[in-house]
Design a protein around this nucleic acid. Structure first.
Lengths: 188, 188
DNA sequence: GCTGCTTCTTGATTTTGATCAAGTAGGTTT
DNA sequence: AAACCTACTTGATCAAAATCAAGAAGCAGC
């Protein structure tokens, strides 16, 4: 989700609508490894990443399994928990010192109900999130771990520059040992 | 997505809004195995399943991999292709003779732009689709094939009653042989 | 600089599910 | 009913990745 991009590309907020949004955003600084959202909590706040990065992960049998990595302009939080206002099944933590602009659930609902442009943007964001999730779902269903590794290098090389390898391993659905062997195998 | 349920539960359409929707829905009958959408085509039509069932699947190396199964009240089509109006990467086919109510992309956009209730419903449908996709993504990432099999039996036993096993196998990310062995193993 | 921790790599072995191959059972068509 | 097709099962072998184990390399704090 590149919200900032979408905003000006797909909808035309009036300056009043823009002002209403900006007034609600408050800056916040997350320390490295600080949890933005913990499993079991309801995600009542959602934010845009201005500078930095974050990781979404599940905890299964004491182990962390990375679901996604977020960088600048992405929305930080659990959409599933935020939309439903039910406890989150995933954790969200900053990978490094990260600057965000956040707003609360009630503020977002207020924008939806009072500004058609933001209601529409909400729909488009949800659609984009869905498309992104479906693409990931497809890669987990159709592709071998090895192909997922090669695709990630090809399509998102920056992930390897900014995210520790053992986090990437669980994202690919493999162990760190297997990732290490892929790297060896495809090193040229 | 249980649209019909959602409609009355989460939003309050006026009778005018309801009438506008109903006027656009046209009935259609899909024969068993008839394709509703083919890979490469843009999904310009979306429908509600009144009676029957359908399967979404990818084709990889000449093989079909089932992504999802749809039953009564579900929305049939590719959301990703429909939302983006880009070629679909998946196929949609009826599993049996299936009655649907369908409408076109332009009609849906018209509803979104002219009726706040439908714009809002569009957002909520997109959110629900996202949550559903994320849950599936999580099971593919976190769970073993065996656990996915056991969860499917537990949570959606009706799938085993209405869908051929070899379709279910690829949905679980395993071969028909492995599914057959799980069934043997857990038969009590 | 050293110490200790975390990350990453490498090797040996085991496990899981895929593949290959064959056969059985149910339905449908003629 | 016979022939055919599709769906499903069962068995033997193979391949991929996990696990177990150990070590190397990078870094943070003292």
């Amino acid at each position: 989700m590149r919200v900032i991009d979408n905003i000006e590309i797909v909808i035309q907020p009036t300056s009043e609508e823009k002002a209403a949004l900006e007034k609600m955003l408050r800056p916040r600084l997350l320390a490295k490894n600080e949890l933005f959202l913990k499993e079991g909590e309801v995600c009542t706040t959602i934010g845009f990443i201005e500078q930095g990065s974050a990781r979404l992960f599940y905890i299964v049998d004491e182990r962390e399994i990375s679901k996604d990595f977020l960088f600048e302009n992405a929305i930080i939080g659990s959409f599933a928990s935020f939309f439903s206002q039910l406890p989150s099944s995933l954790n969200v933590a900053a990978l490094e010192e990260t600057h965000i602009l956040e707003m609360d659930y009630r503020q977002v609902m207020y924008l939806y109900d009072h500004y058609p442009a933001w209601q529409k943007l909400g729909r488009i964001i949800a659609q984009d999130q869905f498309i992104r999730s479906e693409r990931r779902e497809a890669s987990l269903l159709k592709d071998s771990p090895e192909l997922r590794y090669l695709s990630l290098i090809e399509e998102h090389p920056k992930v390897f520059k900014r995210v520790p390898l053992h986090y990437i391993a669980s994202y690919l659905g493999i162990t760190p040992e297997t990732l290490s062997r892929y790297r060896q195998k495809f090193k040229h």
